[in-house]
Design a protein around this nucleic acid. Structure first.
Lengths: 347, 347
DNA sequence: TCTAGCTGGACGTTTTTTGTCCCATTAAAT
DNA sequence: ATTTAATGGGACAAAAAACGTCCAGCTAGA
């Protein structure tokens, strides 16, 4: 970092935290605008008084404006956001952590966003936005994109900008699961991606859990076979990473399954596969969906997951993750991962 | 200024004041070390609590250390002072003001130091230090230096660093006045300069006010004549600028003299000359001392004066000041001068 | 027309800051 | 050797600021 900034922080140590806090608030407003005070409190994880104090200041500084519909960021505000982006990352030590994580996880690129999405819901949007930007950067080269479900994936779809539509883009639901909340399943996400980008989408309506016979039968259906072929041609895979047990519960897995997952020591889950602490596959849902081999064949894989609670899962999944994977995560998860690694090294 | 800093200040407007305050405290400690809390309060013009709060912070930041003898600046502290020097000047708008003043006063160089020496006594030391540094820069080229009296000049002598002694340096008392406080008269100052730099000094012990006859008589004395010759060879003149009336009072001038000064509309005083608002000479003390013509012949002239109360005097003196003059002043005086000029322009 | 969500005002209750002592200690001066 | 004047640190009541929390009035959109 610049020596001048170092000196500045030496003389004003409180500056760092203050800057981060205000930046985060301003950024959240920018993302959710127009947004009211109360709503902002919840989404930014702060008390009403605090939000009020800061937003009053931001208004006096002409960085935001307050209308009856809610608060909006002014042009000056977006400019400030833009100018300070790198700086905030720097003083949060995010750049350093990104390099560390790249080494730890053995992948070529990690993007870390400030704060912890477990504590501050708005961080999920920030992650979504960053992932959306990265994904958009791939659109010119790659057109066949497989997407999974989950709230993180939903956040990405929200942040995809409706730029010039690209009809060639094709979003493929990576799994046919109906176990989850409709808004967060792969099918819905694929549709949302397609709508935002002007592309098309392919869905797969099949329950996650099928008996062996039913499964075999279905796989012979032309509609399903077609999807299987698409998976083979996939250029990009975008997926979240979940905690094994949480996912099992959310999917209403049978007791038998839960037992397998538990006894196998499963920690993480991604596109229907359960991994243990060494990244070995413990169990996979018998479902129509993308296969691990097919994922590994993709040119680029975008793994998106944030929050301290996801740290162990991320670490587990990346033990054997394909090399071209890019991870988008947040500070909370990143710090926890580094902490876990340090503890491991001590023993 | 850098766009990044502008954005930073937009988001944290309180930063600017805070930085200036802490910097000033740290700088004062650096200048007066070792210094105790109480003493620092007086010299920095702040309450005990405030000083205490800030010094506690500075200590936690390892910029100063507290011993029983007083507070001292650590090596980190001096480094921070050094790094932030330009920055503090920038955010105080001093650089801008310097350019403005150069134009207003019609001279080539102005140096402005933060704060107002009327309010904060320590600022006088800062002015002294800056003037001392400038003067030291001239030592290699110029050896014959005429100095006047006054508390400002005394401040310079205090801040002259005892670097490698230069026996060739010669400090000449510009006037022989005995009217003032001994510590602040030209003779004492010349001696102090010489002691700090390892040079020699020439003094002139003659009362300021002499009858015409006595004056003529004395001028024929060889000791005096020698001084007069020295004035002709002077390379550098360092002088303060005073308020006319204040000086008259301090010098215990006769009623007759005071009347002349008053009726002439004298505003400023420098090396025994009194100037009115247009820079015209209203009166001069009949004394053995450097002549205005001799001052004008010098290669460099260093005028040093600070504090809002000196603004009018500075403006008055510089109406006709020699071009190669360099002015060292403070923010208080500078702002007041610019304010006065603005008012003048309005009418 | 109605309702949900927005801002701005208000106010009692903490929490922090502030002003002001005194005290033991130490280094210098007598 | 003794005094003196300065130092940092501790303490505490008073003042000020910050905080949590409510309500009123308004506006945009359903």
């Amino acid at each position: 970092m610049d020596a001048l900034f170092a000196a500045q922080q030496k003389l004003m140590p409180e500056m760092s935290e203050l800057l981060k806090k205000r930046y985060q608030i301003l950024q959240t407003i920018s993302l959710e605008q127009p947004i009211g005070r109360r709503t902002l409190c919840e989404v930014a994880g702060a008390t009403e008084r605090e939000i009020r104090k800061e937003t009053d200041l931001l208004r006096n500084q002409q960085l935001i404006q307050m209308k009856t519909a809610g608060m909006t960021v002014t042009s000056q505000g977006t400019e400030v956001l833009d100018k300070l982006k790198v700086f905030v990352r720097e003083i949060s030590g995010l750049t350093d952590m990104e390099v560390q994580l790249q080494a730890i996880l053995g992948i070529s690129k990690v993007v870390i966003l400030p704060q912890d999405s477990d504590e501050i819901p708005a961080v999920k949007s920030h992650i979504g936005k960053e992932a959306a930007r990265l994904l958009e950067g791939l659109f010119t080269r790659y057109k066949k994109i497989a997407v999974t479900g989950g709230s993180t994936m939903a956040a990405i779809s929200k942040e995809l900008s409706n730029g010039k539509p690209d009809r060639a883009l094709q979003f493929i639901a990576a799994r046919g699961g109906l176990g989850e909340d409709v808004l967060h399943q792969a099918n819905t996400i694929a549709a949302a991606f397609a709508e935002k980008t002007g592309g098309s989408f392919k869905t797969l309506y099949l329950p996650d859990h099928l008996s062996a016979e039913a499964f075999e039968m279905m796989m012979k259906e032309p509609v399903i076979k077609e999807m299987m072929d698409l998976y083979d041609q996939t250029d990009v895979v975008v997926h979240g990473i979940g905690n094994a047990e949480e996912m099992a519960v959310r999917r209403h897995s049978s007791l038998e399954e839960v037992e397998k997952i538990r006894s196998g020591g499963a920690i993480s889950e991604a596109f229907g596969y359960y991994f243990d602490k060494d990244g070995k596959i413990v169990y996979r849902i018998r479902t129509a969906g993308i296969q691990l081999k097919q994922v590994q064949k993709a040119s680029t894989i975008l793994a998106v997951a944030g929050g301290g609670s996801k740290a162990r899962a991320i670490l587990s999944y990346f033990k054997n993750a394909p090399n071209p994977t890019v991870l988008v995560t947040d500070e909370g998860a990143a710090r926890k991962i580094i902490e876990l690694i340090k503890k491991l090294e001590e023993y």
